[in-house]
Structure formats: C-alpha cells, structure tokens
C-alpha cells in the first residue's frame, strides 16, 4: 500500500468520524464548528486529488464564509436542536439508508481511481481543452480557461445564482424588510480584546492583498474570481467582527455594497454584449482585441473581476444583514 493511499484512508476515516459526531451533537454551535472541520478535511482530500481550484473554493467557502453565516444565523435563533421523538426517527433513518445504499450501488459504475481510460480521459474534448487552450488562450491554468472562456455562459449562470441569493437575503432581512424586525443589535464588537484588534488591523492589508493576488494569479495557479471574492468578504467580516459593524459600514457603506451586487453581474453581461456589438458571438472574447489571445486575456480578466465583485458584495451583505438583527427568542 502506498503512502498516498494510506493518507487518503486516514483522511476518509477522520471525515466519517466527524460526520457521525456532527449528527450526534445537539448543541448547534458545536455542530457548526465541526462542520467547518469537515470542510477542512474535504479540502485536504481535494488537494491530494490535485483539484487545487476546488480545494481553494471549499476552504474559502466551507470554512471561512459558511461557518460565519451558520453561526450568525444560530445567534438569531435557538442554539440547541429540538429533540426528535424516536417514532419519527425511523422514516429519516430509512431515507438515509436508502439514499446511502443507492449512492454506494451507483459508485460501482465509476471508473477506477486514477484510471486512464475513463470517459473523461478519452473524450476528444479533454484533449481540446488541455492542448488547444494553450494556443487559443495561452493561460497555464486550464481550469480558468474552461471556467471563464469556454464555459463562460455556465459561469454567468452560477453568478446569477449568487446574485439571486444576495437579493433574496436583502429582501428578507435588508431595507425591504419590516422596519420593526430590522432593529440593531446593541453590542457587536470585540473592543475589549486589544491584542486581537492590533493583530487584525495588521493583517487586514495582507488579506486584501492576498485576495487581489488570488484574483490576478488565477490564470497561472489555483484561484480566480469566486475565491478572491470570498477572501475579500472574509476580510470585511473579520473587520466587522473585531471593530464593530458601525466601523465596518463606515469603511464600506451598505449602499455601496448593494450597488456592487448588480454591478458585477452587469459587467459580466456587458462584456458579452460588447462582444456581440464588435461582431462576435456572446462572450467571444476574441473580438476584444486585434490579437485573439490578448482579447481572451482581457475578457477573462474582466469576467473574473466581475465574479469577484459580485461574490464579495453578496457575501458581505448577507453577513451584515444577519449581524445587524437582534435575536428574537
């Protein structure tokens, strides 16, 4: 047995143990924290599978943002799970076992791990993406070429989903919500913790710089618009948590955030429309410059920035909307 297999098996065992513990815990804060741990282990597995872009996203979203949002949501409700009576557990167990059994049964159809003649490996499109993209676009990270250029329309759809989520949260908790429900929470800062304040202030520029690095380095290594947006959001969330929401909203006023949510989406759409006006098809970046490769570079850069802007604005807005409310227990 190779080292690689052994590491994978130990990580899988850790993953299963974490999942079982999360389902057993009835204290929901603790369960939320353990689900962050679950994401970390999943991300490690993705790293071992060489899926570095996925690992990046999993870590940024699973640990950074969804933990914060889960905790923010829990702070507004009860933090203990209600007890399910034993009679009602049976149907749940049946469904879980059935679904799990189906998945295990279906997994037998999957090609062997690392198999060279799986459908994905043999399909001519794989070769096109891996080799042709170097000539068409000339970006070392093929994931970025596929995500932002070849499948640009799919990515636009994903961005639309993020946008819709942000609008939905704003409609429920934002300016359109009932004004009585939108009361401020009194105490939301960690000003007593001087060390934390100093260190966070020191880290802030590095976090934002790292987010920019992830955004612009996505052509060459792991990273891109989604990840950079989440890192920006994590930076703002950290600032809001440590210095208080009022301070954070002085730095980035809510109105600006609300305006940035559609701005990213419109920028993305705008790139596509400009392509059409220049005589190409929608999101055909070749038209942006006389040299097709340069046009692709510019288009991918614009699209990635658009994704980053919308994602960062949506994540930050969702967090601020949660944190601005008082618990209604």
């Amino acid at each position: 047995m190779t080292v690689f297999t052994l590491i994978n098996i130990s990580l899988l065992a850790i993953l299963v143990a974490t999942a079982l513990t999360v389902s057993r815990l009835r204290a929901l804060y603790e369960a939320a924290m353990l689900s962050a741990l679950f994401s970390l282990v999943t991300a490690c597995l993705f790293v071992l599978l060489d899926a570095v872009d996925v690992a990046f996203t999993e870590a940024a979203v699973g640990v950074g943002i969804s933990t914060v949002l889960l905790l923010g949501g829990l702070a507004l409700t009860r933090s203990r799970e209600a007890v399910t009576p034993r009679r009602r557990r049976l149907p749940g167990a049946a469904v879980a076992i059935l679904a799990g059994g189906t998945l295990v049964y279906a997994s037998q159809d999957l090609p062997a791990f690392g198999s060279a003649d799986s459908p994905v490996q043999r399909h001519p499109l794989t070769d096109t993406y891996l080799h042709q993209s170097q000539e068409d676009i000339g970006i070392p990270n093929t994931v970025t070429s596929v995500l932002a250029s070849y499948r640009g329309l799919d990515t636009l759809g994903e961005l639309l989903v993020v946008f819709t989520a942000g609008v939905a949260v704003l409609a429920l908790l934002g300016p359109l919500a009932h004004p009585v429900d939108a009361r401020r929470r009194d105490d939301l800062d960690l000003v007593d913790y001087r060390v934390l304040r100093v260190i966070s202030a020191m880290l802030m520029p590095f976090i934002l710089l790292f987010a920019l690095y992830v955004l612009f380095h996505g052509d060459f290594g792991p990273g891109g618009g989604f990840q950079a947006g989440v890192i920006f959001a994590a930076g703002f969330v950290l600032y809001g948590l440590v210095f208080g929401l009022d301070k954070a909203q002085q730095v980035v006023p809510r109105v600006v955030l609300w305006a940035l949510i559609p701005f990213g989406l419109l920028l993305y759409l705008g790139v596509g429309v400009v392509n059409m006006l220049l005589g190409g098809s929608f999101l055909d970046y070749d038209t942006l410059s006389s040299d097709p490769a340069a046009g692709q570079h510019l288009g991918i850069l614009l699209v990635e920035s658009a994704i980053g802007i919308t994602v960062a604005a949506v994540m930050t807005t969702v967090f601020f909307s949660f944190a601005n409310r008082r618990a209604t227990r």
């Binding site: 870590a59 950074g64 905790l71 829990l74 702070a75 933090s79 960690l190 976090i207 950290l238 948590l241």
Partner: peptide
Amino acid sequence: LYALVNFVAVVAVLRLT
C-alpha cells in the same frame, strides 16, 4: 488561505457565541 480562514472562523465563533 487555510491559515487565514481558520483565524476568521475562530474570531467568528468567539464573537457570535
């Protein structure tokens, strides 16, 4: 990235609970 989000998560846990 892990080092960063880990810190944010710990601060969030402390602040929000």
